[in-house]
Write a protein that binds this DNA or RNA. Sequence first.
DNA 1: TGGGCCATTTCAGCTGCTAA
DNA 2: TTAGCAGCTGAAATGGCCCA
Length: 257
Amino acid sequence: EREEGEVAIRCVNEHCPAQLKRRLLHFGSRAAMDIEGLGEAVVDQLVDRHLVADQADLYALSVEQIAALDRMGLKSARNLVRAIDASRHRPLDRFLFALGIRHVGSRAATVLADAFGSLESLQEASEDDLAEVPEIGPVIAASVYRYFRRAETRRLLRKLKAQGVEPLRVKRAVSGPLSGLTFVLTGTLPSMTREEAKRLIEENGGKVASSVSRRTNYVVAGEKPGSKLQKARALGVPVLDQTRFLGLLRRKRPRAK
DNA sequence: TGGGCCATTTCAGCTGCTAA
DNA sequence: TTAGCAGCTGAAATGGCCCA
């Protein structure tokens, strides 16, 4: 059965293994808490062997417990524990995305993190406070409000805090060389991942969109670009390679549309 | 207020790389 | 050698915004 306020199918039993596995996979994904090595096979075994009952339990896992899983050696186990440990202090927007609140993807998470600054402020916000934030409509506001009112959520947040998980208060650059500009990434860049490019754009005041439109200022294309490149050309959107993109960052203030 | 457009999220599927 | 994963694309669904 479906329930609003959740990223996945919610079972009648709140400890439904399938739902827990999806939550854990989303939590550890690169765009969320970036826990490298926390893949489907590992999550399956952690849940099936009752080693984790929620996201907070990940932080209590030992190298020995992980190394005992199928197809896991000591090296992989150490790498995973290190990755879990490093995820304790991620920026607030990524932590919010990791929680898997319905209708809150990376963009909405960034907007909410910038608007409220801290997890505490967000938890205390009323539905009206949330809906007043630009780009957040009543559906997302209601979803976020309900999520933070649930006893299960409060329990999880307390447990994460007890494990030393403290999202960082990050105020993004409101003005920077890319301020007011919208970028779309396509293809593989020679010397950085898309995630790194995305962070670079956001740290410099720009915004990253997932699809090309007339409002897109630049498309950054790497090797083997997808259909976004054709769409950019059709719409007359300027296309940059990595070198020209990095050149744009060094310029003081490029043109805005 | 409704419709159209655009942005964003979700999800399935593909490719190439990595580590056991 | 091979399973699993990261990184990515693109289609569909959904939500927000804008304008007549």
